Amino acid sequence: MPTVLLGVSASISAYKAADLISQLKKKNYNVEVIMTKNSTAIIPALTLQVLSKNQVHLDVMEEATPTDINHIDLVKQADLFIIAPATANIIGKIANGIADDMLSTTALAVHDIPLLIAPAMNTYMYQHPAVQTNLNRLISYGYQVIEPKESLLACGDYGKGALADISDIITAIQELI
């Protein structure tokens, strides 16, 4: 059973991670979930734990056993790494080598497996030169970007920035595993 290592950051679309996990499980994938602290304000970790049937990883300083280095061990067992949704914040951290939470630390440890990122944010944030520069840097590091869709956003603006459809994200995962 292939293992998908799913990072969830604090976009309003974090709630869609539940559907993504559910659909991946139905397709016989093991899903390990890493959440940023702020994403748990949008969707409880317990929800994703129940759906994934795995402990949700939240704190880089919390190791289940003294012999584990969680952010390294998760990478070693993964067949693919994806961040969905990916905020401007997590994109910027990873693009610039900042490792200050479980998700960014794990992202910097990933090697030799496919890398996907699905941005989700306000249109103006997505279009900002810093975000575009950071996405291009991630592409140069080997990430494939699942482009956000054009839609009415949670803030009321209309434009490109909504998380890609879950079916498109699953297709991208399946093509790489």
Rank of each mutant, 00 (worst) to 15 (best):
A10Y: 15
A10K: 07
S11N: 00
A14T: 00
A17V: 10
A18E: 08
A18W: 08
D19Y: 01
L20M: 06
L24T: 10
K25N: 07
K26I: 09
N28D: 15
N28A: 14
N28C: 07
I34Y: 07
I34N: 09
M35F: 05
M35E: 03
M35R: 00
N38C: 13
S39V: 11
A41F: 13
A41E: 13
I42P: 07
A45L: 02
L48Q: 00
Q49I: 01
L51M: 04
N54H: 01
N54V: 09
H57N: 15
D59E: 07
V60S: 15
M61K: 02
A64E: 11
A64H: 11
T65H: 11
I72F: 08
D73P: 08
L80D: 02
F81M: 13
F81H: 06
I83S: 00
P85H: 04
A86Q: 00
A88K: 09
I90Q: 03
I90D: 14
I91A: 14
I91G: 10
G92E: 15
K93C: 05
A95H: 11
G97W: 02
G97T: 15
I98Q: 07
A99L: 14
M102C: 07
S104C: 11
T106V: 13
L108S: 05
L108R: 08
A109P: 04
I113A: 09
P114Q: 02
P114E: 15
P114G: 14
A118I: 09
P119V: 14
